[in-house]
Simulated assay, not measured.
Amino acid sequence: MAQRPLLLIDAPSLYFRAYFGVPESSARAVDGSPVNAVRGFLDMLATLVRTRRPDRMVCALDYDWRPQWRVALLPSYKTHRLAGEGEGEVVPDTLGPQVPVILDVLAAIGIPTVGADGYEADDVLGTLATTEPAPVEVVSGDRDLFQLVDDARPVRLLYVGRGVAKLEDCDDAAVRTRYGVPAHRYADFAALRGDPSDGLPGVPGVGEKTAARLIERYHSVSGILAALDEPDSGFAPGLRAKLDGARDYLAVAPTVVRVARDVPLGPIATTLPAAPVDPERLLELAERWNLASPVRRLVDALAGQP
């Protein structure tokens, strides 16, 4: 029988999607507080447990959504998401209060949540995907996590860009088909292409196809930069000028995009419980926040019920 996977959940990615995917008017607590993100997030977990049948799970959190070490390398990193000078990330007013409810429910069920000071959820996921026993399935709508795919371990990305119901189960062949590069080259490819959602400008005039061709030929950004110093390296004059003009950016961008794999996390009990570890607390939360149905669906999924 195939070994059951460790399911690594990009919690911010999923609860943001849940917030925008479930109308507030359809999910409110007794006091009128919206719980749409909580309801949607729990239903996503129930679907994942039921369809992927993991025996281990961890929900990764953003303790620092914009780490200073990344900003020091690339000041534009996620600047468009800042609420204001010296302030935190722009988060919808009615989403912020729902995150502690999600964490309370996960704690009562016994699903571990893990974050690390100075690191994003992506870095926690990268570290766990590298250090925990395989097989591993990472669940996220963040394209940067394609770089974690590793057929040898194996590590797969369950990409939920179109929702959990339409997740894409991605191995290295899927990454190659989608972007024209192997998964372990994705960070360099993304640095070249850029990503406006993260404030990565990319190299002006270099899109996905050109970035993929460059990575195929030179393997990495460092390989491209080394080739630029060779007069007969074969760059078309226009492309050489674009890359030359972006040298300072290219010197740091791959490090910014590359997910950390050595975050100090300490021991984590990853085993997925078959029943809630604190059923009384879970019942209290379900009643207080009007979450009886999604909680029951998740509890049933953990118990192996359809």
Rank of each mutant, 00 (worst) to 15 (best):
residue 157 L to H: 13
residue 157 L to P: 04
residue 157 L to T: 11
residue 157 L to I: 12
residue 158 L to Q: 06
residue 158 L to N: 08
residue 159 Y to I: 00
residue 159 Y to F: 13
residue 160 V to L: 06
residue 160 V to C: 05
residue 161 G to N: 04
residue 161 G to W: 01
residue 161 G to D: 01
residue 161 G to Y: 05
residue 161 G to E: 03
residue 162 R to K: 11
residue 162 R to H: 05
residue 162 R to N: 05
residue 162 R to Q: 05
residue 163 G to H: 08
residue 163 G to I: 00
residue 163 G to M: 09
residue 163 G to C: 07
residue 164 V to N: 00
residue 164 V to E: 00
residue 164 V to M: 03
residue 165 A to Q: 12
residue 165 A to G: 01
residue 165 A to C: 00
residue 166 K to R: 11
residue 166 K to V: 00
residue 166 K to L: 01
residue 167 L to F: 13
residue 167 L to A: 10
residue 167 L to Y: 06
residue 167 L to G: 06
residue 167 L to I: 00
residue 167 L to Q: 09
residue 167 L to N: 01
residue 168 E to H: 04
residue 168 E to R: 10
residue 168 E to K: 12
residue 168 E to P: 01
residue 168 E to N: 03
residue 169 D to N: 14
residue 169 D to G: 04
residue 169 D to I: 04
residue 170 C to L: 13
residue 170 C to Y: 14
residue 171 D to M: 04
residue 171 D to E: 15
residue 171 D to G: 14
residue 171 D to R: 15
residue 172 D to C: 15
residue 172 D to E: 15
residue 172 D to V: 01
residue 172 D to A: 15
residue 173 A to D: 09
residue 173 A to N: 08
residue 173 A to E: 14
residue 173 A to P: 03
residue 173 A to F: 07
residue 173 A to C: 07
residue 174 A to C: 13
residue 174 A to R: 14
residue 174 A to V: 06
residue 174 A to E: 10
residue 174 A to L: 08
residue 174 A to P: 01
residue 174 A to H: 15
residue 174 A to W: 07
residue 175 V to C: 06
residue 175 V to M: 07
residue 175 V to E: 15
residue 175 V to H: 11
residue 175 V to Q: 08
residue 175 V to R: 05
residue 176 R to Y: 12
residue 176 R to A: 11
residue 176 R to C: 08
residue 176 R to M: 09
residue 176 R to V: 03
residue 177 T to W: 09
residue 177 T to I: 06
residue 177 T to F: 04
residue 177 T to N: 09
residue 177 T to Q: 12
residue 178 R to H: 04
residue 178 R to Y: 12
residue 179 Y to E: 13
residue 179 Y to M: 10
residue 180 G to T: 12
residue 180 G to P: 03
residue 181 V to K: 11
residue 182 P to I: 10
residue 182 P to Y: 14
residue 182 P to R: 15
residue 183 A to G: 11
residue 183 A to N: 10
residue 183 A to V: 02
residue 183 A to T: 02
residue 184 H to C: 08
residue 184 H to Y: 14
residue 184 H to L: 08
residue 184 H to G: 12
residue 184 H to V: 14
residue 185 R to A: 08
residue 185 R to Q: 13
residue 185 R to I: 05
residue 185 R to D: 05
residue 185 R to Y: 09
residue 185 R to M: 03
residue 185 R to F: 05
residue 187 A to I: 03
residue 188 D to G: 09
residue 189 F to Q: 06
residue 189 F to T: 03
residue 189 F to D: 06
residue 189 F to G: 04
residue 189 F to Y: 15
residue 189 F to I: 02
residue 189 F to P: 02
residue 189 F to R: 10
residue 190 A to Y: 02
residue 190 A to Q: 07
residue 190 A to W: 00
residue 190 A to C: 03
